[in-house]
C-alpha cells in the first residue's frame, strides 16, 4: 500500500520536474528541474527493484551529465551586455500539438495492448550478477563497441571544443 502511494508521489514529481524543464523561463532553472527529473526516474527504477540501474542513473545522469550541462551553461551565458533571447520559439503551439498527439497514441498503445508474459503487479528482482553475466557474455561485443564509441566521442569532443590560436 505504502509502495503505491510513494510511487504516485514520485511519478508526480517526475512529471512536474520534466514539465519544468520544457516550460521554465530560465535556463538555470530548467537545468535544475532536469536534475530533479533524472533523480526521480532513478527513484522509479528502485520501485522496479533494479538498484543497479538506479545507481548508474544517479552516477551518470545526476553526477556527470547534469554537471556537463551546467558547465556549458556557465560557459555560454550572456553577460550583462548580452541581449536576452527568447527561449521558446514561435513554433511552440505546433510542437505542443505534435507532442499531445504522440502522447495520446503512446498511452493508448500502452494501455490497450495485452503484454505477453506479464508477471502481474510485482516485478522480479534482477540481481547484479545476472546483469553482469548478460552484459559481458551475451552482449560482450556491443559492450566493447560501446567502449570504442565513448572513446571516439571523447576525442571528438576535445577536438571540437579546443581553443585554437586563431579563435
Amino acid at each position: 500500500m505504502i509502495t503505491e502511494v510513494l510511487w504516485w508521489i514520485v511519478a508526480a514529481g517526475v512529471v512536474g520536474a520534466s514539465a519544468g524543464v520544457v516550460l521554465s523561463r530560465s535556463v538555470v532553472h530548467a537545468a535544475i528541474f532536469l536534475i530533479l527529473s533524472l533523480a526521480g526516474v532513478g527513484a522509479i527504477y528502485l520501485f522496479l527493484t533494479v538498484e543497479f540501474i538506479a545507481l548508474v542513473q544517479f552516477l551518470i545522469y545526476g553526477g556527470a551529465v547534469t554537471v556537463l550541462i551546467l558547465l556549458a551553461l556557465m560557459l555560454t551565458r550572456m553577460g550583462a551586455s548580452g541581449r536576452p533571447e527568447p527561449l521558446t520559439g514561435a513554433q511552440a503551439p505546433f510542437g505542443a500539438l505534435v507532442a499531445a498527439a504522440l502522447m495520446a497514441t503512446l498511452i493508448g498503445v500502452a494501455v490497450a495492448t495485452a503484454w505477453p508474459g506479464d508477471l502481474g503487479g510485482s516485478p522480479t528482482a534482477i540481481s547484479i550478477e545476472r546483469i553482469g553475466a548478460a552484459l559481458f557474455q551475451n552482449y560482450g561485443a556491443p559492450f566493447i563497441i560501446m567502449a570504442a564509441l565513448l572513446l571516439v566521442a571523447f576525442v571528438g569532443a576535445i577536438v571540437i571544443a579546443r581553443q585554437e590560436d586563431g579563435d
Binding site: 503505491e4 521558446t88 510542437g95 505542443a96 505534435v98 504522440l102 494501455v111
Partner: peptide, 27 residues
C-alpha cells in the same frame, strides 16, 4: 502493487514532454 501500464504511461508522458521541448525550444 504497481502494474506495468503505470510505468509505460509515465514514460509516454516524459517522452511527449521531451518532444515538445525539442520542437519548441530555441536555446
Amino acid at each position: 502493487m504497481v502494474p506495468l501500464e503505470n510505468y509505460l504511461v509515465l514514460s509516454a508522458i516524459l517522452f511527449a514532454l521531451g518532444v515538445y521541448g525539442v520542437l519548441s525550444r530555441r536555446n
